[in-house]
C-alpha cells in the first residue's frame, strides 16, 4: 500500500493544545508541509505570537522565537538581516497582528522585509476569552460587545490584506479560508507561494487565513466552518491582492 496522507515530520510528534475544531492545527500542518516540500527545514525559523498560538514553538520542528505581543515582524526583521540566506516566518493572530502589532506589520511590509507572515483571522480574541477584536464583524456578539459590534461606536472591521497590498514593499498578499476542501487546497498553495516569494527575495509576503474559533463563537466546529462562508467571506473577500 502507498501512503496518501501522513503527518509531516516538520510538525513535532506532540498533540496540539488547541480546542476541538480550531483552525490553528490545520494551518500549523500546512505551514509544516510547505517547509518540508520546499526542503528548507534546516534553513528556516519561525516567530510565535502572543495569543492562542503562543505555544507554536512546541509544534514546529524548526528554530522558533517567541516575540513580545505584536512584535513578531520586528524579530523576524532582525533574524532576516543577520541571516539573509535563511528563511523566517511569523505566525500571528488578529489580536497580535491587526491590533497591538499594527505598526510593526505595516512598517515591516513598507520596508519590504523579505519575511513571510501567516495571519490567522478568526474575528475575535481567542486566548483572553472571546473579546471584540478589530476584525470582529459588525453585529457579531462577543463578551465585550454583548449586543453585537456597533459600527457607529467601534467602526467597521479592518481589512489587513487589502491595506498591506497597497504598500510598495509587499510582494505577495492573499486571503484564504479553511471552510471547505477547495479552500483548504488554495490556502496551502498560497502559503507555498508566500514562502517562494521570500526565497526569490521579492519582498514582504503575507497570507491572511479566515479561521474558525468554535469555542468563542459559541458554535459547533461544523457550524463555525459554515459561519466563515456565510458571514466572514462576504466581508473579507478571498483572493490574491498583490503578486509581483
Amino acid at each position: 500500500m502507498t501512503v496518501v496522507f501522513k503527518k509531516t515530520p516538520v510538525l513535532r510528534d506532540v498533540p496540539l493544545h488547541y480546542c476541538p475544531g480550531c483552525g490553528h492545527g490545520i494551518v500549523h500542518r500546512m505551514v509544516s508541509e510547505v517547509i518540508e516540500e520546499l526542503g528548507i527545514q534546516d534553513k528556516c525559523a519561525g516567530v510565535a505570537p502572543v495569543g492562542c498560538a503562543v505555544f507554536a514553538y512546541n509544534y514546529f520542528d524548526v528554530d522558533m522565537y517567541e516575540a513580545a505581543h505584536g512584535r513578531a515582524p520586528a524579530v523576524a526583521t532582525g533574524f532576516k538581516r543577520v541571516h539573509p540566506d535563511h528563511y523566517i516566518f511569523t505566525y500571528q493572530g488578529d489580536g497580535d497582528l491587526a491590533s497591538i502589532g499594527t505598526a510593526e506589520i505595516v512598517h515591516a511590509a513598507h520596508r519590504g522585509e523579505k519575511i513571510t507572515t501567516i495571519f490567522i483571522n478568526n474575528a475575535i480574541y481567542g486566548m483572553t476569552g472571546g473579546q471584540m477584536a478589530p476584525t470582529t464583524l459588525v453585529g457579531q456578539k462577543t463578551t465585550t460587545s454583548p449586543l453585537g459590534r456597533d459600527k457607529d461606536h467601534c467602526g467597521e472591521p479592518i481589512r489587513m490584506a487589502e491595506m498591506l497590498a497597497t504598500i510598495s514593499g509587499s510582494a505577495f498578499i492573499a486571503r484564504c479560508a479553511l471552510n471547505s476542501t477547495p479552500n483548504l487546497i488554495k490556502t496551502k498553495a498560497a502559503i507555498k507561494k508566500a514562502f517562494e516569494t521570500q526565497i526569490a527575495r521579492k519582498g514582504f509576503s503575507m497570507v491572511e487565513i479566515l479561521s474558525p474559533c468554535p469555542t468563542n463563537w459559541g458554535k459547533s466546529p461544523a457550524e463555525a466552518m459554515d459561519w466563515i462562508a456565510d458571514a466572514m467571506i462576504p466581508y473579507y473577500p478571498l483572493g490574491t491582492f498583490k503578486e509581483v
Partner: peptide
C-alpha cells in the same frame, strides 16, 4: 476513495490514509 479530504481538514493531524 482515499481523497484525503478528512485528513486535510483534521486540526489535530489524527488521520492517516493509504491506498
Amino acid at each position: 476513495i482515499a481523497c484525503a479530504a478528512c485528513a486535510r481538514t483534521c486540526p489535530d493531524t489524527a488521520i492517516e490514509i493509504e491506498k
